[in-house]
């Protein structure tokens, strides 16, 4: 089980458009083992989606460029790999689901047609058989009366059902890795719970690996084993999910956990926000990108960039002055 499936190291992505240069990903390193689930969290614009698109070779060719780093899947380098290899991987060994299922489903094809198309792209299978497989998949993701539903168009399904159909489609080629970019952000909390429970059950049953992009730390705690926190295009903290959430080392992770009200803690009188705003990704940053908002910053932080390095066993952070706060024993907020 501890065999690495996906190894990303020092990934960097740049956009060059008329509006100027944006360095969206500035150094991202992580490994996902076979059967493992990892969450990627960070503010909007911190580079989560761009880094995922980069893995699949789905960045816009004209404006985007991977300027450094390496992405290995089962030991094979994907950066610079021929388009043919990438096409075979996408929807095959690596599948992806997005936040908005309506925009990623084809509105003029039935659910059946879309799943069958997907199956046939990766496997030789006759039409009738592929249709049966589509129904099986919809059944597996908990769509009631799958045999009828499969003949419907995306707009005839509810948001939750569309997301299930997307999952069914992603699973059609039995991928080893599923990338899910905010798969439940558009859904209600009761439906979110249904979908995530489904996703992680399937993940365990099939021994699939999962990269879950989200901004919800509750979802992270409930559904992932490993966690990477991004800030301004970089990995700033990484480790076992329970350990990072229980005892964050990086001031950003700590600030995030202290700023949210929590149903598992007594009601507090006042929240403790992180002051200021995230930096503009079109600007070059000197020193630590979190420095303007960091309550632990010292003079070195403004001029020298902290490297992403080991803090303790299997724990990484990019900070000159890592913290050690056991949040279980801290009454959060003032």
């Amino acid at each position: 089980m501890n065999k690495p499936l996906l190894e990303v190291s020092n990934l960097q992505v740049e956009f060059n458009s008329r509006q100027g240069k944006v360095t969206a990903v500035r150094g991202l390193t992580y490994t996902i083992n076979e059967g493992q689930s990892m969450a990627l969290v960070g503010e909007s614009g911190s580079g989560k989606s761009v880094s995922a698109l980069a893995l699949l070779g789905l960045l816009p060719k004209k404006t985007a460029k991977i300027t450094a780093g390496s992405v290995k899947f089962r030991g094979e380098e994907l950066i610079g790999a021929p388009e043919k290899t990438m096409r075979k991987l996408r929807g095959g060994s690596i599948a992806m689901i997005f936040q908005d299922p309506l925009s990623s489903l084809n509105p003029v094809l039935t659910i059946s047609q879309q799943i069958v198309e997907q199956i046939k792209a990766h496997e030789k299978m006759e039409g009738k058989k592929a249709e049966e497989r589509a129904i099986e998949l919809l059944d597996m993701v908990g769509i009631p009366s799958a045999r009828e539903r499969v003949k419907q168009y995306p707009h005839q399904l509810s948001g939750g059902m569309r997301q299930r159909a997307m999952i069914a489609m992603a699973l059609s080629a039995s991928p080893s890795l599923l990338l899910a970019d905010e798969p439940t952000t558009a859904l209600d909390v009761t439906i979110q719970a249904q979908i995530l429970e489904l996703l992680t059950n399937i993940q365990k049953d099939l021994g699939m690996s999962l990269l879950l992009i989200t901004h919800d730390l509750g979802v992270v705690a409930g559904f992932t084993e490993k966690l990477t926190v991004m800030y301004a295009g970089k990995a700033v903290e990484q480790g076992d999910t329970a350990e990072v959430l229980g005892n964050p080392n990086h001031p950003y992770t700590l600030g995030l956990l202290r700023s949210i009200p929590r149903l598992d803690r007594p009601r507090t009188s006042e929240l403790k926000p992180i002051q200021g705003v995230a930096p503009d990704m079109s600007k070059v940053s000197v020193g630590c990108a979190f420095q303007p908002r960091c309550e632990y910053a010292q003079s070195k932080c403004a001029t020298e960039n902290p490297l992403f390095s080991t803090i303790s066993k299997d724990r990484y952070a990019a900070c000159w002055y890592p913290q050690d706060h056991a949040l279980q024993n801290e009454s959060l907020s003032k």
């Binding site: 719970a193 509750g218 705690a221 559904f223 959430l245 229980g246 956990l257 929590r262 149903l263 598992d264």
Partner: peptide, 9 residues
């Protein structure tokens, strides 16, 4: 259904 940011819970 509301998940909380504590893996133990």
């Amino acid at each position: 259904a509301v998940p909380v940011p504590d893996s133990v819970v």
